[in-house]
Nucleic acid binder design. Structure first.
Lengths: 227, 227
DNA sequence: TGTACATCAGTGAACGCGCGTTCACTGATGTAC
DNA sequence: TGTACATCAGTGAACGCGCGTTCACTGATGTAC
């Protein structure tokens, strides 16, 4: 029978897992996703590559852990930033959320690419990533849910209820499917802007990326609501 | 001195280069960007891997060729589709452009990822890719340029002329920088929508992706113009 | 409290594989006179 | 038109390297009685 109190060994195990992931994130940041090599992580830690298999069954499991962590890290940072804003100021909450997502993306470009960039070939994301992924989405959804006058959320013209998944009603409450569609499009636009910037598609056109992002963010909000 | 008429050898050479790229695109489509392996391409062609070096100095050069081709293919397809629409119907031209980009992306997901997804680590895009990249952008710019009443293009509130690169004025003519910013944001939103769909971020929320895209496209256009 | 045993972390060598790239070469095709 | 030479496509073997993963093992740490 397993002891239910957490002993020294368990502590060290958890600590070691954290170290592996920290080093992995470091390599990710310096060498890109190609640099995520088990042997390099072990070398960096002064250990053998086979030691890694005490903590992760294989490379994909480590990758999953990093993806889940990235979603959670972004989620936590955004939740914290958004929570600081007056609950009644939905626009300010939206701006804080957007700016925080962008700041996190710029600070962790490779982790951002991991979760919002090209899917990794031959890698199937397990369900646990979906749970972690929903955190940021939930922040944005809550802002819409907290709007005092929901009828002001613009509809997406020719969108029917059947065009969206039924589950969407649990996230976005008190709005019509057509309005939910507008919210989805707004989020997609937000991440589109960040991806375009991060992946180099504003080279030669946008100079002051922060100013452009923040100005666009404001317009996205205006577009979400009807005057 | 080189013969200026193109001989049989030159024809065959050009044909061989096309074959290599075609096979490479096939492998890209079936195995993702990881599947882009010189040895596999050669094997598929019934040749030795070293034979590839008659046509491409190294793997990066082939990659560049594929990227340039992808941009040009997308550009050509979009140009053709957009040209079919009545020049006076700017909205219809925008819709045709957007729908064609999406259709191409769905038909060539890995080529789309190559040019609009996560940048490839340790790969520096040479200037020739930028030229090819500008074709699609130009189509979208021309639609805005052809608008009869440009004052109806919405401005991006707090955007200054200095926030954009000066060269933007050569693409988007007759509009203020603030209006050009709105156009840029619209394009970014368009590609954001496609990337979100392709990279799996609408799983669990959007069911009928075509309907959602087309409905959103219409809203993007409305957002571009003030009533 | 002490002892026998079980559990776990980490080692080091090896397996099997695949990669991009080089190089000396052969034979076919084109070119110059 | 014929011949000598240059150019080119493609071969096959090899280099050097790195990868994920396995496996028998050693020694330290925790557990049960």
């Amino acid at each position: 029978m397993r002891r239910w109190s957490v002993g020294v060994r368990d502590d060290q195990r958890a600590h070691q897992i954290e170290t592996i992931k920290r080093v992995a994130r470091q390599l990710l940041a310096t060498h890109g996703s190609t640099g995520l090599v088990l042997r390099d992580i072990a070398r960096e830690m002064g250990q053998t590559s086979s030691a890694m298999y005490r903590y992760f069954a294989n490379r994909d499991e480590l990758l999953t852990a990093l993806i889940v962590d990235a979603y959670n890290d972004l989620g936590a940072v955004v939740e914290r930033a958004e929570a600081k804003v007056d609950r009644n100021e939905c626009f300010e909450r939206f701006v804080a959320t957007g700016k925080t997502i962008r700041r996190w993306a710029l600070a962790h470009p490779h982790e951002y690419a991991l979760i919002f960039g090209t899917p990794i070939p031959n890698y199937q994301a397990p369900p646990e990533t979906i749970v972690a992924a929903s955190r940021v989405v939930l922040v944005l959804a809550t802002i819409v849910n907290d709007l005092p006058r929901k009828q002001h959320v613009r509809r997406v013209g020719s969108l029917n209820a059947s065009d969206l998944e039924p589950g969407i009603g649990e996230f976005l409450v008190g709005v019509t499917p057509s309005q939910a569609g507008r919210a989805l499009a707004t989020w997609s636009s937000l991440f589109g802007l960040i991806s375009f910037e991060l992946f180099g598609h504003f080279v030669g056109s946008v100079k002051n990326r922060s100013a452009f992002f923040e100005a666009s963010l404001e317009e996205f909000w205006k577009g979400l609501l009807s005057e």
